[in-house]
Design a protein around this nucleic acid. Structure first.
Lengths: 368, 368
DNA sequence: ACGAAAACAGCAAACGCTTACCATCTGTAC
DNA sequence: GTACAGATGGTAAGCGTTTGCTGTTTTCGT
């Protein structure tokens, strides 16, 4: 029965082999093939064998579109990032993608470049493609649109903050703790005058980070004069510009915290061009711990926000929203932890007690 | 007629509004709606108006899966890159994506991480998703798989080299000319001992680049001793390692060309850690002109391979393969030009004639 | 050995859309 | 007034799946 009828084939289009070809080959109905493929247990084991053999022989690949059409689920996830060219995001994309793929999802990536119009049209495209859920790793998505989606119970995942509506997951990054660690590290080294280069303050997340910084400073009883709070835009250029403004101040702070690593890298560059040395004259601390950070000169001390954790939470959150029987269906907040990674861009400030040298050196550690 | 029956709606699933809703609303058949949406001219203008109005009112978005199912074309393109975290690729992805979207295509991105198994499964996923074509911006795709695809007349685009088969576009980067310009630039500055840090030589494109270097050198009558030919892996780490090997040589070359910018950046880093200064003691030239290059210290002299040109060619090549009436249907080779961007990482070698200073300085220019 | 239930496979109806084909209507030539 | 062509809209047949329902076996208790 197995080796019977060797030569049939030939359809109109040689394009794609369909479930029908398999059914014909295995001598069963297409329903049985479908059930076999979907591992539905009512198929007799022996028959299933035959079907699998046929599948292999004709080289059948189920057509995802057709599946999606009938099931209403496309098994695609949308991933919206601010700017794919910002090194943090490719790392995130990579993690997100491999997790999604492991769960049988494909990923549609979009970069908004901080343009609300782009974001809107991107969302529309994703919806039209029937993605099963969207992770929004950027800011400034219009509430309006989000509301509409949520009404449809469309699974969404946001970083930091999002509307308080059902079926939305919020990936809560623990900025407060991370930035506090950074500030305390600097304070422990003896820094009193610490500046902060923020991200674009028109967005929520950068504001959150800045506020976390201010809180951490005030907890230590340290004042932050307004000129020590400069705005960047989370890019290297922004970091350069902001650092230049700090350098122009009559009294340079002894340390600078940055809202993200690219900003910190920009700050380092701006400083290289001057006579100020890092970390001898000024310490620089970043946030994110992108791959590049450890290759800076000096290697950048930074607060690590694990890409991997973020991606895991995003994918899980979406899956929880999509699959009604997911153990965490309905879970709203997904905590993302942060931790300080001390490298060589931070040190005791010039003129502080030599005793601190040992302390500072002692605390150094490379990432684990 | 327009404002009639205000309150109907209510389907089983509030999920998605279909062509039927529009038809009902506009009081026409679904065929007419479809024709209107697809701008088929046999629809009476006035009627079309009414349909568009209805579309707007009910918020209709055509279901792409269904369209794909019936048309056999998904309007999705696959984009395979080696490593999304290598800064060159996000830039490429961005360009590719916006071009594709402008043409009504969505992009499915995959990163192979140089793993043939990943590449294979990625290809399979893309096929299963019925992408209309795939741009392979990496190397090491198995000929076997490619052959199978080409038999189906599946549109593919490769960089540099690919099998000589129909419906395949080859994006021919003019390495020879680009690298020649780099080498000639160095030679003009007075360099005679120029080393080359290659990419992973197991792949074709890195080999091509190295050969281009050797050719350019021999054209100038310059010898390249084997120890001046070191292998990197196109990453910063690789560049660091390779440069360290060069530094360990008894006679350091006066200039180093690198197979890509990340390698060059790694080389710069390795040199920073030594007493050798760039460009005073040694010149470094990259290849790609990634965004980061201009922010290096010193800004990196490099051979620009325009991401944009590459993306344009890739998308056009695929479109040409997909759409039979495309003006360039069947076009095989798509030339990608390169050009030298002189910045500050290259200068006359120590001890050369002062007269060269002026020449070198005169040639400097920032990217246009 | 009989009947009922369980196990299993097939039929056919969707899913939302495109499009070939057909029906209708209008206008024009005779 | 009739016939016919051209314009335009509707009908329905798919596209490749999944799945509820139904029909046919097989299994098993008695």
């Amino acid at each position: 029965m197995t080796a019977a009828r060797e030569n049939f084939s030939e359809r109109r289009r040689p394009v794609s082999v369909s479930i029908r070809d398999v059914a014909e080959r295995a001598g069963v109905s297409i329903a049985t093939v479908s059930r076999t493929v979907n591992r539905i247990s009512t198929v007799n084991a022996e028959l299933a064998q035959r079907v699998w053999k046929a599948i292999d022989e004709v080289g059948y690949l189920p057509n995802t579109q057709a599946r999606a059409l009938v099931s209403g689920r496309s098994r695609m996830l949308g991933l919206i990032v601010s700017e794919i060219t910002n090194p943090f995001f490719p790392e995130l994309v990579q993690e997100f993608e491999s997790l999604a793929v492991a769960q049988g999802y494909e990923v549609l990536i979009g970069s908004t470049n901080y343009d609300p119009a782009r974001t809107e049209s991107l969302m529309r495209r994703l919806l039209q493609r029937n993605v099963d859920g969207v992770a929004v790793m950027t800011f400034g998505v219009e509430e309006e649109l989000v509301k509409k989606l949520v009404e449809r119970e469309f699974p969404l995942a946001f970083v930091d903050a999002g509307p308080d509506l059902p079926n939305i997951g919020i990936l809560k990054v623990d900025y407060a703790e991370g930035i506090r660690q950074g500030v305390q590290h600097l304070a422990a080294l003896g820094h009193r005058r610490v500046a902060f280069i923020s991200g674009p303050l028109a967005q929520r997340s950068p504001v959150t980070r800045r506020d976390a910084f201010l809180l951490a400073m005030s907890e230590l009883g340290l004042k932050v004069p307004p000129e020590h709070l400069v705005e960047g835009n989370h890019s290297m250029e922004g970091g350069i510009g902001a650092m230049e403004r700090l350098i122009a101040l009559p009294d340079l702070p002894t340390a600078v915290m940055c809202s993200n690593d690219m900003t910190a890298i920009g700050a380092l560059h701006a400083l290289y061009r001057t006579t100020h040395r890092v970390p001898e004259d000024i310490s620089v601390v970043g946030f994110d711990d992108i791959h590049l950070a450890q290759f800076m000169l000096p290697p950048l001390t930074t607060v690590q926000m694990s890409c991997k954790d973020l991606a895991v939470a995003a994918v899980e959150s979406l899956r929880a929203g999509i699959e009604r029987d997911h153990p965490k269906h309905g879970k709203r907040e997904w905590p993302i932890s942060t931790r300080l990674v001390v490298r060589q861009s931070s040190a005791f400030p010039r003129g502080s007690l030599p005793a601190l040298v040992g302390t500072a050196k002692g605390k150094r550690s490379e990432t684990g």
